[in-house]
C-alpha cells in the first residue's frame, strides 16, 4: 500500500500538475484565449454553454466538500496528503469553471441564482447522498462515491466535451484537458486505495456494491438529462451558417461524429463508454457492477 501511495505524494503532484501541465495557464487556459464570439453573441449557444458549465461547477463543489471532508476520515497519513492535493485540484476546478461562467457573461452578483436555476436535480441529489457519507466519516463510502462513481463517470463526459470543443472552442478544451489530467489521478487513487481496502475488509464488499448501485443512478440520470437539453446538431449548424461560418464536422469521439449525432446517439455511446469503463474499474477494485434502479419517487 505504501509503495502505490508514493506515486500520489505532494512532490509528485507539484511536479506533474502546477509545475507541469498547468504551467503558463491562467484559470486553466492560455492567458490570451477567450470564448468564441458566436458563443457569446448567440443566446441559444450561450445558454447551452452556461447550462453545461453550471453542472461542472455543481459537481466540483461537491467534490471539493467531499475530498476536504475525507481528510479527517482517512485511515493513514499518506491518504490524507493525497486528499490534500485532491482538495486543491477540486478548488481549482471550482475556480476555473466559475470563471468560465463570468466569461460567458454571468454577473458576479447573479452567480448563485444562475447555478440554482440550471443545476440538475439528480446531480444535487447525488451530492447530498455523497456528503451524508462524508459527514459520517465513512472513508470507504466517501472514496467510492467521490473517486470511483462521481469522477469515474464524469471522466468520460469530460473527454467527450473536450473532443467536441477542440476545434470550435480551444479555450474551454484546454481547461477541460487540465481537469481530465487531474481526474485521471483521482480515479487512479480511488481504484488503488479502495482495491486494497476491499482486500483487507472483504466484509465491506456488499455494502460498496449497494452504494455503487444507489449512487450511479443519479449520475447516469444527470448525463441523460443534459444530453436531451439544448440545441440539436442541425440547429447548431444553422446558427453557425447564419453567422457566416462553416460548421465543423471533424470532431469525433468513440467513432461518433459529435457535430452530427442526435442526442439519443450521444446518450447511447456515452452510456456504453461510461458503463464499459466503469465495470472494468469495479472489476479491478474487486467488486461486481450492480445495475442501478430508479429510486422510488
Amino acid at each position: 500500500m505504501t509503495d502505490f501511495l508514493k506515486g500520489y505524494d505532494i512532490q509528485y503532484w507539484l511536479e506533474s500538475c502546477p509545475q507541469g501541465y498547468l504551467e503558463d495557464t491562467q484559470y486553466g487556459h492560455g492567458a490570451s484565449a477567450r470564448e468564441p464570439d458566436l458563443v457569446l453573441e448567440n443566446p441559444t449557444l450561450r445558454e447551452q454553454a452556461i447550462g453545461t458549465t453550471v453542472q461542472l461547477v455543481v459537481g466540483e463543489r461537491c467534490a471539493l466538500a467531499a475530498s476536504s471532508g475525507l481528510i479527517n476520515a482517512a485511515p493513514d497519513e499518506a491518504s490524507k496528503r493525497f486528499l490534500a492535493t485532491q482538495t486543491l485540484d477540486e478548488a481549482r476546478h471550482v475556480e476555473v469553471f466559475t470563471h468560465r461562467l463570468y466569461d460567458l457573461g454571468v454577473k458576479k452578483g447573479e452567480l448563485e441564482d444562475v447555478i440554482a436555476q440550471y443545476a440538475n436535480p439528480n446531480l444535487v441529489h447525488f451530492a447530498e447522498l455523497l456528503l451524508e457519507r462524508v459527514d459520517a466519516k465513512d472513508f470507504v463510502a466517501g472514496v467510492v462515491g467521490q473517486n470511483v462513481v462521481l469522477e469515474g463517470m464524469a471522466f468520460n463526459v469530460f473527454e467527450m466535451l473536450q473532443a467536441a470543443n477542440r476545434e470550435t472552442n480551444p479555450k474551454f478544451a484546454q481547461t477541460l484537458a487540465g481537469t481530465i489530467a487531474d481526474e485521471r489521478r483521482h480515479v487512479g487513487f480511488g481504484e488503488n486505495r479502495i482495491g486494497s481496502l476491499v482486500r483487507e475488509h472483504p466484509e465491506r464488499k456488499r455494502d460498496i456494491e449497494q452504494l455503487q448501485k444507489e449512487m450511479s443512478y443519479f449520475m447516469l440520470a444527470t448525463f441523460g438529462d443534459q444530453m436531451r437539453q439544448g440545441p440539436t446538431p442541425e440547429q447548431v449548424s444553422e446558427i453557425v451558417t447564419a453567422s457566416g461560418g462553416t460548421p465543423v464536422r471533424q470532431a469525433e469521439w468513440q467513432g461518433l461524429k459529435l457535430s452530427e449525432a442526435a442526442p439519443e446517439e450521444l446518450e447511447a455511446v456515452l452510456g456504453d463508454t461510461i458503463l464499459k469503463e466503469f465495470k472494468l474499474r469495479l472489476e479491478r477494485i474487486g467488486i461486481e457492477y450492480q445495475t442501478p434502479e430508479r429510486p422510488a419517487a
Binding site: Q11, S68, E77, K80, R81, A84, T87, L88, A91
Partner: peptide
Amino acid sequence: SKIFLSTQTVDEGRHLE
C-alpha cells in the same frame, strides 16, 4: 475562503511530507 483554505490544506500536507 474555500479556495484559500484548499491552498492551505495542500501547504500543510506538503509540510507534513
